[in-house]
């Protein structure tokens, strides 16, 4: 297990080193990602200048939602960006060599790229989370802190799992792009707002089918007591594990369909 993780970081590190060759690009990517987060946030901040709350959610609790979504995005960019290249790897037959090496194929594919925009997303997302926690009235105790950390990890796992599963559908689709996963990624941005504002169909989509609500809404709801669905937040670690296991299963099933392009 430890060896698996060490090797994963090493694979990531090699790509990171290579991409840092272009320093100007690094800063532009980080800036672009940060600006995208900020743009969404400027909107919501401007709204809160005019209204005190959205469905009972105050400015800083919504900031927490934004922060969780942005941070999870950054986690994917920085550590699992390879998932967005899966369609490409499949289409060009580049999975061949990964399949004959003694290391899980999914991990080799996930570590095959590093998204430098991740840093921008982690920083802005992290800043929003910290600011949100500082400015929200939370009754901290050691137990709360432990649970909060567990929920946070579960939330990140849920996001990574959902997006990996969606990217792995490329084995059933034709073509060299992850357009389906891209569309789902946009659905994920809905989790930046309180779930209550959506019609019931979308609530079902975000809560059950593509459980993005567990990336932000439910864990934040448990921590802040906002929204009255806190108990669901406690399921976050379970949902996280479920999403990752599901993704691994979809990936493995997909791999048996791999046809290896070319001759």
């Amino acid at each position: 297990m430890l060896r698996t993780i060490r090797l994963y970081l090493r694979l990531l590190g090699t790509h990171l080193r290579a991409s840092l060759e272009y320093e100007a690009d690094f800063w532009l990517m980080a800036l672009g990602a940060a600006m995208t987060q900020v743009a969404g946030f400027v909107f919501i901040a401007a709204v809160f200048l005019r209204v005190p709350d959205i469905n009972g959610w105050t400015f800083w609790t919504v900031a927490l939602l934004f922060g969780m979504v942005g941070f999870s995005e950054g986690v994917i960019n920085l550590f699992f960006e390879g998932m967005w290249w899966l369609a490409d790897l499949k289409h060009n037959g580049e999975l061949d060599y990964l399949l004959v090496r003694p290391y899980p194929v999914a991990l080799q594919a996930l570590s095959s790229q590093v998204g430098l925009n991740g840093l921008g997303n982690l920083l802005t997302g992290g800043a929003l989370i910290v600011a949100g926690l500082v400015n929200t009235d939370i009754d901290w105790s050691p137990a709360t802190a432990v649970v909060a950390v567990l929920l946070f990890l579960g939330a990140m796992a849920a996001r990574v799992g959902i997006m990996l599963a969606c990217n792995a559908t490329t084995f059933w689709l034709e073509g060299p792009t992850s357009m389906f996963a891209f569309a789902v990624h946009q659905v994920g941005d809905l989790a930046r707002y309180p779930l209550a504002i959506y019609p019931v169909v979308l609530k079902g989509l975000l809560g059950v089918v593509l459980p993005f609500a567990f990336v932000s809404f439910f864990p934040v709801s448990w921590l802040t007591g906002e929204g009255g669905t806190g108990w669901l937040g406690l399921l976050t670690p379970l949902v996280g594990v479920y999403c990752v296991v599901l993704a691994a299963w979809v990936f493995r099933r997909g791999l048996t369909r791999y046809e290896s392009a070319g001759n």
Partner: peptide, 29 residues
């Protein structure tokens, strides 16, 4: 097993060959 496809490389595009081999060394233990 060892596999070579002449039409396709397994070397890492952005790494020196020595580093590619060393990553494999690590992977195969």
């Amino acid at each position: 097993i060892g596999v070579l496809f002449g039409q396709r490389t397994q070397l890492w595009w952005d790494l020196p060959v020595a580093d590619s081999l060393d990553v494999l060394r690590d992977m195969y233990g």
